[in-house]
Nucleic acid binder design. Structure first.
Lengths: 156, 156
DNA sequence: CTCTAGGGCTAGGGTTCC
DNA sequence: TGGAACCCTAGCCCTAGA
């Protein structure tokens, strides 16, 4: 968290502009490395350069119609939450009636916050691939398989 | 119209407080998504949560007169011209009073320090519970089910 | 493995309305 | 005059893809 938000100075912006002029757009790492600009940009990563350029060029565009009616505004997003399941046109077989009382053990893990798994899809897919043989019968085996596999990651 | 200025109810405030206690400050999207608080906050965006928290904490602070302290923090590298600035921050030549002055709240949350405690198990379990009826439902249906349910989390 | 493109999120400053 | 609710956007992180 050592980042209080480092605002770009005009020197840095100028260096970035010059760097893009010299190397072209998208050559962020080259610009950052170039001894000509590095003195100004040594504290910025190539990603920072990219992000900054994005911001700078956005404003350079044209001012789109700003007919935003001041006195009245349409506001989407009334809800879209609350109920979750069964909202899709999917057939959703039976749904087994009162299914929303699933007895989640829910043991531990109360957080469930921030960065979550990136490659869970792969894991599930792998499990299914490995077990899909018999018509995907025992579904619980998938969980077993995945859980079995969780000896390296500490979460999940 | 739907929202000319939606005042916050005490239920919403309470949910927000609880959400901050659970997830910590700054995890607005998580709080909003959390099924525990979503019923109260479904009509508020994560930005609304942030703004409301700002208002609440400003007034809640106290009636004490002084207290103008800002969350200002050390800012290395102000200049960006010429050559590399001194690499040594020349902070405290003599080590006496420590330098740790992290003013951040970081409200407790004690035990759950472990990041990433996804509840994917619960989701998968729910999917299987809902689909298990018709005998070994094909495994891909489980993924479909979970994906359909992903109206809140963006990853997965 | 390295790097870029793009999406997503937060912090903070502004703006509007009461 | 000031506060509450809302809007805008810079900066940064994360991940997929080349």
């Amino acid at each position: 968290m050592g980042n209080p938000k480092q605002k770009w100075t005009s020197e840095e912006e100028e260096a970035l502009r010059a760097g893009v002029a010299k190397h072209g757009t998208g050559k962020w790492k080259n610009i950052q490395r170039d001894p000509e600009f590095n003195p100004y940009l040594y504290s910025r990563s190539n990603i920072d350069l990219k992000d900054k350029w994005r911001n700078m060029t956005v404003s350079a565009g044209s001012q789109s119609v700003k007919d935003k009616s001041r006195t009245l505004k349409a506001r989407p997003n009334p809800d879209a939450a609350a109920h979750v399941a069964a909202s899709t046109p999917l057939s959703n077989p039976h749904s087994s009636a009162a299914a929303d009382d699933v007895v989640f053990d829910d043991s531990s893990e109360a957080a469930a916050d921030s960065k979550t798994a990136p490659k869970y899809n792969a894991m599930i897919f792998e499990a299914i691939s490995a077990l899909n043989e018999p018509n995907g019968a025992d579904t619980s085996a998938i969980i077993s398989y995945i859980e079995r596999r969780q000896e390296l990651p500490q979460n999940f």
